[in-house]
């Protein structure tokens, strides 16, 4: 268990140190519309509504952040 936690931190540290190297001018790919966490709102609302009315589970659709991180 302890080893697992250390391993997880190990992996996470790569992510976080990797993260800090993405500078504002390097976010061209992340700014692409197809890379957004939330897709096209109209399309999303349609599908969510359909699934909502047919299945018991719902929620957790909202998301924020991402994009070009422009100022």
């Amino acid at each position: 268990m302890k080893l697992l936690i250390i391993k997880l931190c190990f992996v996470a540290s790569f992510f976080t140190s990797g993260c800090s190297s993405v500078e504002p001018w390097e976010r061209g790919n992340l700014a692409k519309p197809e890379m957004q966490i939330s897709g096209d709102a109209v399309d999303d609302l349609l599908l969510e509504q359909v699934f909502y009315s047919k299945e018991a589970a719902s929620g957790g659709i909202g998301a924020a952040g991402g994009g070009c991180g422009c100022n």
């Binding site: 990797g18 993405v22 966490i37 998301a63």
Partner: peptide, 13 residues
């Protein structure tokens, strides 16, 4: 929620 840029080509919410 928490959104994290992982690298130049990936992002996780």
């Amino acid at each position: 929620g928490w959104t994290q840029i992982i690298n130049q080509n990936s992002i996780l919410f």
